[in-house]
């Protein structure tokens, strides 16, 4: 039978090279990646890529660096699945495949001129780091910036050195809280929701940007609403399983929306009635 060659496949990967790895915790590693031909990834903060290892598979991973860094980009990977565990065995100089970037990122043009209250739980800091870096690189375009970061224990803190840099800046306020800690931890202990009531903010000009584990959203959103931040100014990013990244395979579907194409960033007002969203 005659064969037709599909030369324009959407599943073709772009070659990329790991140029640096940095172990952040026993489970999480930061990879700095350069695309073949030194081209820029040209993503928006909040977008994700499909990382591809031939023979193992692909996994959706959010970009953890700002597009203002143009020569390379970073991803923060937790070793939990087949692809992510295999990625952790790789080092500087190794090649990986990339598809994307995919999805709708944070609405930065809408954020401009307004205040930001960024709430990151656990690995939620990965996509938010892209936003935070972008805001700090373009600091005067935004109003007040407040960061609330939380994780399980002090040993789970990601980007601790950057957190120290952010702390030293006069143009951003940040607080870090852990669920539980030994005596050498001097910061606050408890749930991230306990930090929100103490934040001084002007709700009508504040965007609450929340990324974290699924269980966190309900409680954080409740606190943000209690601060009178309107529903359409609460911005969330969802984690879902994905195979194609192009709105077809069905894995990431939340009722009538595809997380990969319509999201992963959503306004709370657009998804609050969806039981499958939370």
């Amino acid at each position: 039978m005659e064969k037709i060659v599909i030369s324009e496949s959407n599943y073709q990967i772009r070659k990329a090279r790991i140029v640096r790895t940095k172990k952040l915790t026993p489970l999480e590693t930061l990879f700095e990646i350069v695309l073949d031909g030194d081209r820029s990834l040209d993503h928006e903060p909040g977008q994700f890529i499909m990382v591809s290892l031939f023979g193992i598979g692909e996994a959706p991973i959010s970009v953890a660096s700002s597009p203002t860094m143009r020569d390379s980009f970073e991803i923060c990977v937790r070793a939990v699945g087949r692809v992510t565990k295999a990625l952790h065995a790789l080092d500087a100089g190794d090649e990986i495949g990339i598809r994307g970037p995919y999805g709708k990122g944070f609405p930065i043009r809408i954020f401009e001129g307004n205040d930001l209250l960024i709430v990151a739980g656990g690995l939620g800091i990965a996509p938010l780091r892209s936003l935070i870096q972008y805001v700090l690189d373009n600091r005067r375009d935004f109003g007040k910036a407040h960061l609330l970061l939380g994780c399980k224990t002090p040993q789970d803190i990601l980007f601790a050195d950057e957190l120290d840099q952010w702390r030293r800046r006069m143009d951003v306020q940040s607080e870090y809280i852990v669920d539980r800690a030994e005596q050498d931890w001097t910061g606050p202990v408890g749930l991230i929701t306990t930090l929100i009531p103490g934040v001084h903010l002007e709700p009508e000009r504040t965007f609450g940007v929340v990324v974290g584990p699924p269980v966190m959203y309900k409680f954080v959103i409740k606190e943000l609403l209690a601060k009178n931040i309107p529903e359409h100014q609460i911005i969330l990013s969802f984690e879902r399983h994905m195979k194609c990244g192009m709105g077809k395979c069905g894995r990431c579907q939340i009722q009538n929306i595809y997380t990969c194409q319509d999201g992963p960033v959503f306004r709370y007002s657009a998804v609050k009635h969806m039981s499958e969203a939370f």
Partner: peptide, 19 residues
Amino acid sequence: LLEFDTRRGLHAGPVGVAG
């Protein structure tokens, strides 16, 4: 979707489908 050969770096060739 793709035919790959990891001996050639990240080589992935286009595939043929039924005519």
